[in-house]
């Protein structure tokens, strides 16, 4: 089946089997290996990407379901060579150790801040509750997302 999926703003047309999962479409067909592939059972959340702006676990979405729609992966967060505020937050607050969960965490963090620019700690923990950090580095992940919220505010204040 021929599908066209817009990934990080660029349309890609490919011939795929209906049973191909979105995570493998991104990694194997498009070579976008920033999206990680973990438990394969929609539990761990490392494969989280945004589908039309909403975080989904791409191991449990068929690539054909993304036909005609927009996908954002971690490769699409950077703008004009500048990291997104959530990426900067993870750098500043040591939000990653092994980095396996990081791409999925970043995409959920971006979605959360787009919806709620000033989340409290409880709201951040709730938002990432479907994603596992195998290093158990949750404290710093929460701090990183909070850092991004504060950085975005101070940037707005300067403008």
């Amino acid at each position: 089946m021929r599908i066209t999926v817009t990934v990080n703003g660029q349309p890609y047309t490919r011939e795929v089997e209906p049973r191909l999962l979105l995570v493998h479409f991104l990694r194997d067909e498009l070579g976008l290996t920033g999206t990680h592939w973990g438990c394969d059972t929609s539990n761990c959340g490392v494969c989280t990407v945004q589908l039309d702006g909403v975080p989904v676990k791409s191991c449990t979405v068929l690539a054909v379901m993304a036909d005609g729609r927009e996908v954002t992966t971690v490769e699409g967060l950077e703008r004009d060579g500048e990291l997104d505020a959530v990426q900067k937050g993870f750098v500043e607050c040591h939000g990653l150790q092994c980095g396996f969960c990081t791409p999925g965490m970043l995409l959920t963090a971006r979605w959360l801040l787009d919806r709620n620019p000033d989340p409290d700690e409880g709201q951040i923990r709730e938002a990432i509750s479907g994603q596992l950090c195998r290093c158990t580095g949750y404290e710093n992940i929460v701090r990183s997302i909070r850092w991004a919220a504060d950085a975005s505010h101070s940037q707005e204040a300067r403008q």
Binding site: T48, P55, K57, T60, T108, S129, G130, Q131
Partner: peptide
């Protein structure tokens, strides 16, 4: 029910 990401689908 499940988690916030699963609940999106």
């Amino acid at each position: 029910i499940a988690d916030p990401i699963v609940r999106h689908r």
